[in-house]
Structures are given as C-alpha cells and as structure tokens.
C-alpha cells in the first residue's frame, strides 16, 4: 500500500500513548475481553477490513474481475455480533476456550490527515491454540487510524489488513486481528 499522508512523526508522548493503546488492545483481545475492547477502545464509526489479494502477474493489467476478497468488512454492529457469539454460551468452537497470544511490533505513529487522528502502522504475530492438538500462526501488518474522542481518549477508527497468506493454513480467521 502507498502512504496517503505526510510522514510527520507524532510526539514522544503521543507515541507512548499509541503504544499503550495497542498493547492494551492486544491484552484485552487475547484474554476474551473483546466486549471491553469494543466498548472502550473502538470508535462507533469503525471500519474494520481484512482482505486477500488474488495472485496475478505484475505486468498483467488486463485481467478481469475483482482482485481482492474481503474476509472482514465490518462496522461496529458486525464486530459486536462476532463478539456476541461466545456470549450466547452455545458457540461450541470456543468451548473449550481458544487461547490467543500476540506480539505487536514495528509500531510507527504519524499525524493523521485530519486533526486529532493518527496514522499507525504495526506488525502482528498471533498464535492460536485450541482443541488439544491445534496450533496455528498468523503474521500480518496493520494500518490503523486512531482518533481522539471528546473525552481525550484514543479510539480505533479504521483498521485495514492486507492479509498476505493467500492460502490460509490456519483454517479460519475467527478472531479479532
């Protein structure tokens, strides 16, 4: 993806704030506190997208059809539904519980296009353990926009993940990336 904004680095204080945000987010998602994540860290206008690109030759500009498929193209209500599945008590795929563990790194923060917004890049490495024998790993980069709300707190306004593994060996992406 190309950079859409001027690369004006955020201040050290804001950088610390962004890092704390991403680390808290990782901890909440990995410990089944997604509802807390949604309610305290996600902007109601969230656009949450994960897509996969079909592999085509570099020089091929004439091919037909869409070149991406969106695994996630979620708004706030959609994310709430995903989280709501486990809360029913009948989501068998989450019982016994899945265990997630993620490392978030390569964090960069820049002033956003609009005031009070920050363009944030990070890389993620996630391992999911479930059902005795299953261990799956996923690596991907995130392009986020964080927005400062009226309460002064940062919230996730936009997340776009260009998912690189074309053929997903970890079966599915049924977790918050």
């Amino acid at each position: 993806m190309t950079t859409q904004h001027q690369e004006i680095a955020v201040s050290r204080e804001v950088r610390d704030e962004i890092e704390r945000f991403l680390f808290r987010e990782a901890r909440l998602i990995d410990t089944e506190q997604e509802r807390e994540w949604l309610e305290t860290m996600v902007d109601p206008e969230i656009k949450y997208q994960v897509f996969s690109r079909q592999l085509r030759y570099r020089k091929d500009t004439r091919g037909s059809g869409d070149k991406e498929v969106y695994f996630f193209d979620d708004n706030y209500a959609d994310l709430s539904h995903r989280i709501g599945l486990r809360e029913t008590g009948t989501q068998w795929v989450a019982d016994p519980p899945n265990r997630l563990r993620r490392i978030v790194g390569n964090i960069e923060g820049f002033e956003g296009v609009r005031a009070g917004e920050y363009q944030v890049y990070s890389n993620c490495m996630v391992t999911r353990n479930r059902m005795v024998y299953e261990q799956m790993s996923y690596a991907y980069g995130r392009e986020d926009i964080l927005r400062r709300g009226a309460d002064g707190k940062l919230r996730l306004l936009s997340r776009v993940i260009d998912f690189e593994e074309r053929f997903v060996r970890g079966k599915n992406l049924l977790f918050i990336l």
């Binding site: 994960v50 996969s52 498929v69 969106y70 695994f71 996630f72 193209d73 979620d74 959609d78 539904h81 995903r82 599945l85 989501q91 068998w92 795929v93 059902m131 997903v168 079966k171 599915n172 992406l173 049924l174």
Partner: peptide
C-alpha cells in the same frame, strides 16, 4: 450479499468455522 456471505461462510466466516470443527 458479498459482505454477508464473507461474514458467514468466508475464511473469517462465523458459520464456516463452526462447520469446520
């Protein structure tokens, strides 16, 4: 239709993953 299909039966599909187990 495409958005809802991917949310239910795509790679991050909520029903797809339930069937897979």
């Amino acid at each position: 239709i495409a958005r809802n299909m991917n949310q239910t039966f795509g790679t991050a599909g909520m029903l797809e993953s339930e069937d897979a187990d």
